[in-house]
């Protein structure tokens, strides 16, 4: 028996909008730790890891570890039927091939349940060890989204370089090239507007902008984004999901042929 009640149902709606462009089908795993997902895009270039900790739910019952295969476009269709202020409850019986999404309006005057078929998905699960990153950049998520969008009108790839001067996003294309430098800026009115750069050593890596733009679909989840970089490792682009977890996007770099 599985029963997860999330008072801030809009978080789940935003999570689905953040990942459904990157991943088509995925297994949602439920355990005592929480509700999680790990999936790669169809090209195996990017990976998304979601964790919503059990403590973040108002009610969390998961009698045994359960993996539920879902088409994310179909989940998104279901969740779009929930109001932004609705409480969302996920229910599944042991051995069932369906999951039920229950939506309750805040004043309890409307209760809806949507049942969705589950599917069998063969997914490859990767072990991702904790890594020491050469540079970690924390910046406003809207600023990062704007930079990725702007650069993708010029080129297909972005070079992200971190030095003691700041973090530089560069691209080049047929019409020209572009460089955007963000310096560390902690003298702002609100902490979420700060750009904070922790650098152990300079790093410069090249990534496909198409994927970066896809990651920025998570922008509504968090005011800030954290970008962790190490030479010849995938970049990690992390958005916090309130105080209950995170979405992490991993993207493999491009290297010289």
């Amino acid at each position: 028996m599985l029963e997860l009640r999330l008072v801030q149902g809009s978080l789940l709606k935003k999570v689905l909008e953040a990942i459904k462009e990157l991943v088509t089908d995925a297994n949602f795993d439920c355990s005592a730790t929480g509700f999680s997902l790990q999936a790669m895009d169809s090209s195996h270039v990017a990976l998304v890891a979601l964790l919503l900790r059990s403590e973040g739910f108002e009610h969390y019952r998961c009698d045994r570890n359960l993996s539920m295969g879902m088409n994310l476009n179909n989940v998104s269709k279901m969740l779009r039927c929930a109001g932004n202020d609705d409480i969302i409850t996920l229910k599944a019986d042991d051995g069932s091939d369906t999951v039920t999404f229950m939506f309750e309006s805040p004043n309890q005057d409307k209760i809806a349940d949507f049942e969705m078929k589950l599917m069998d998905i063969d997914s490859e699960h990767l072990g991702i060890p904790e890594a020491e990153y050469h540079a970690i950049v924390k910046m406003p998520s809207a600023e990062f989204a704007r930079i990725c969008k702007d650069l993708s009108s010029i080129g297909d790839t972005v070079v992200i370089s971190v030095t003691k001067e700041g973090v530089k996003f560069s691209t080049r294309g047929d019409i020209g090239n572009a460089n955007i430098v963000c310096r560390q800026n902690t003298t702002v009115d609100k902490p979420e507007e700060a750009t904070i750069i922790e650098m152990q050593e300079p790093v410069s890596l090249t990534f496909a902008l198409r994927y970066m733009n896809s990651f920025t679909k998570a922008t509504p989840l968090s005011n800030t984004v954290t970008i962790s970089l190490s030479s010849e490792l995938p970049v990690v682009v992390e958005y916090k999901v309130a105080d209950m977890g995170y979405i992490r996007f991993y993207l493999a770099p491009k290297i010289e042929d």
């Binding site: 699960h125 990767l126 491009k254």
Partner: peptide, 14 residues
């Protein structure tokens, strides 16, 4: 030319 690496070349399959 830049070669696109794949994510599975960095991490072990579990």
């Amino acid at each position: 030319w830049k070669l696109q690496k794949r994510i599975i070349s960095f991490y072990e399959l579990e």
